[in-house]
Each structure stands twice: as C-alpha cells, then as structure tokens.
C-alpha cells in the first residue's frame, strides 16, 4: 500500500545525512524543516544567500529585527560564531563549492540529475529565479527534498524534466515521502522505501525507470 511518510519524517531522514560540522544551505519551503530536526549533537553552520553564516532559529516574538532575515525573508537570529558578509561573497561560497550541502525543493528531477525548481508557468507570472541556479551548481552535494508526486498524483521523477531547468546534472540524492534515491550513472537507484511499499508500487508513481540497490532499506515513518 502506498502510504507516504510525513514532511517531518522526510526532514529527519535528510538530517541524518548531514554530518557534524557541515556548512549547509536550506532552500525555501520544505527544506527549512531540516533545520528544526537536526539534533543538538551536531554543530551545523547554516548559510543564507543574503550574507549570513551561523544563522539561528526564529527569534522570540517581539525580538524580530528587519535587518536579520533569511532567504525566505523571515526573521532569524545569529548564533555565537556567526558572521555577516556581502552578497557577492555569499555567492562565492555557493558557486565556489564552499557549501558542503544544499537542500533544495523541486518541481521535477530527471534520472540524470537535472533539476527544475524555479518556474512552471512562463505566461501569466513574471519569472523569478533568486539564488536557485547558483545553489544548484555550486554546492558540493545537492540534496533534493520533495513529495514523490504532484498534489494531483503526477510523477515528479522523470526521464527528462518538462519544466524549464534550474541546472543540469547536479542532483546527488532525492528524498521523497516514498523513497530515498541516488542519481547514479545509469539513472535513479532506490536506497530506501517507505514501509509496506512494493517496488512495483514505487515504479508506478515514478516516470523515470528505477533500479534498486542490493540492500534497500526501510524509511523511518516517524
């Protein structure tokens, strides 16, 4: 039976793959959840594209500072050891390969690791890209966190993206509410699956052709 795991369970699974001491950029949307579930046993330095390293959680009500916001324009705090720098340096860190892990949301991911996460509708809304393209090309490891299908059940993991690309051949690993998949030289390799899900069921909601690791693990639904 297809029973997806929760967003928080997905975030916990991503967090498990972030090592102590990593410099990490969390994309807007679902990836932000990862910051809430990384345990206190790890020291992670969060980067924000508007010039912050060592970004902390949201401030207490009343303590907000409009000059201290994250990429999603939400108020944040700075941890001891944190620093401010200008925009060009923020992107030197990203494009220059200094960020260890970038966690991004996605509209679509292709079996060769192409990412589409910036636009679906070119006609009625002005296009907006922000830092998505820089994050996708620059980080040492690009992790995608997304639901396995769209809200109306269409596959997001495809042989080829149909939406405009953010970057080509950049995604290393995809975390969905049904599986963890690596982008390998021969396409998507399933590493873990949600409890009770069969391989045929997973393939039925995936347009890209899947191969399965020798030792497919079980995703923790909690």
């Amino acid at each position: 039976m297809i029973r997806p795991i929760s967003d928080v369970a997905m975030a916990r699974r991503v967090a498990r793959d972030i090592p102590d001491g990593a410099y990490v950029n969390l994309g807007i949307g679902m990836p932000i959840l990862v910051g809430d579930v990384v345990g206190p046993d790890k020291e992670i330095v969060y980067h924000s594209e508007n010039g912050i390293l060592g970004m902390g959680p949201a401030p207490a009500p009343g303590e907000e500072d409009r000059e201290l916001i994250n990429a999603g324009k939400q108020p944040v705090t700075l941890l001891p050891g944190g620093s401010y720098f200008h925009h060009t340096d923020a992107f030197v860190m990203m494009r220059g390969g200094h960020i260890d892990i970038s966690v991004l949301g996605a509209f679509q991911v292709s079996e060769s690791g192409d990412l589409a996460n910036w636009i679906t509708d070119l006609a009625t809304m002005p296009p907006a890209v922000g830092g998505a393209m820089d994050l996708a090309v620059g980080a040492k490891r690009v992790l995608v966190m997304t639901t396995h299908t769209t809200r109306d059940g269409r596959p997001k993991l495809l042989p080829r993206c149909t939406y405009p690309l953010t970057a080509a051949r950049v995604v290393d690993r995809v975390y969905t509410d049904l599986a963890v998949l690596d982008v390998g030289p021969a396409g998507l390799v399933v590493r873990e699956m949600a409890p009770g899900l069969t391989r045929a069921e997973l393939q039925s909601v995936t347009a890209a052709r899947l191969t399965f690791a020798d030792d497919v693990g079980e995703l923790d639904p909690h």
Binding site: E49, H87, T88, A90, F91, M94, R95, D114, P126, P127, A128, V129, G130, G131, A132, M133, D134, V137, G138, P164, L165, T166, A167, A168
Partner: peptide
C-alpha cells in the same frame, strides 16, 4: 531576469574593471 549570484557578480565585475566572466550558473537553462 538574472540569477542572484550572477547579478551580484556582474556588478562586482563592473566595479573591478573586468570585461565579464564565465559562470556555470544558468548553463543549460533558459
């Protein structure tokens, strides 16, 4: 529309007296 890092770096190039630069950002995209 300019990717954010490219926007900043294009201004940096102008300020630094450079004639531009090659970046992987945006390659293979619209």
């Amino acid at each position: 529309l300019v990717p954010q890092g490219t926007l900043s770096e294009r201004m940096r190039a102008a300020g630094a007296g450079l004639g531009g630069f090659f970046t992987p950002t945006g390659a293979d995209t619209l």
